[in-house]
Amino acid sequence: MTPRRRKPLRTRIREAGGFYQWFNGTLIRLAGPAQLGEGRGTPCHRCGADKADHVLVDGELRCP
């Protein structure tokens, strides 16, 4: 039984449509798809509340 030989990396990248497409496909295969949907927002570094709950005053966020 002869071991299956992989195609050279250059050929696999070219067949995927370029480096970005090849890298993106490889990354998704390893890490899984992006996490989408409802989730907690980014927490404020000062008060810990979601930044979505803050008020924008004079170009800066104010804690609730």
Rank of each mutant, 00 (worst) to 15 (best):
G59R: 03
H54I: 06
G25T: 06
L56K: 10
V55D: 14
V57T: 11
D53M: 13
T26M: 05
D58E: 13
F23G: 00
Q35A: 08
T42W: 05
T42Y: 07
G41K: 08
K7C: 01
T2P: 11
R29M: 09
A34M: 08
F19C: 12
V57P: 00
R29Q: 15
T2A: 07
L61R: 14
F19Q: 13
T2K: 07
G25V: 01
K7H: 00
G41E: 03
A16L: 09
P3N: 01
G37N: 12
F19Y: 14
Q35M: 10
A16I: 02
C44E: 12
D53K: 09
G59K: 08
G39Y: 06
A49H: 11
G59L: 03
F23M: 04
C47N: 00
A49I: 08
R29C: 09
R29F: 13
I28R: 15
G59A: 04
L27N: 10
G39L: 14
R10D: 07
C47I: 08
I28T: 15
G32M: 06
P64M: 14
W22D: 05
K51D: 06
G39S: 15
R6E: 05
H54D: 08
R5Q: 06
E15A: 12
P43H: 09
A31P: 03
V55S: 09
Q21P: 02
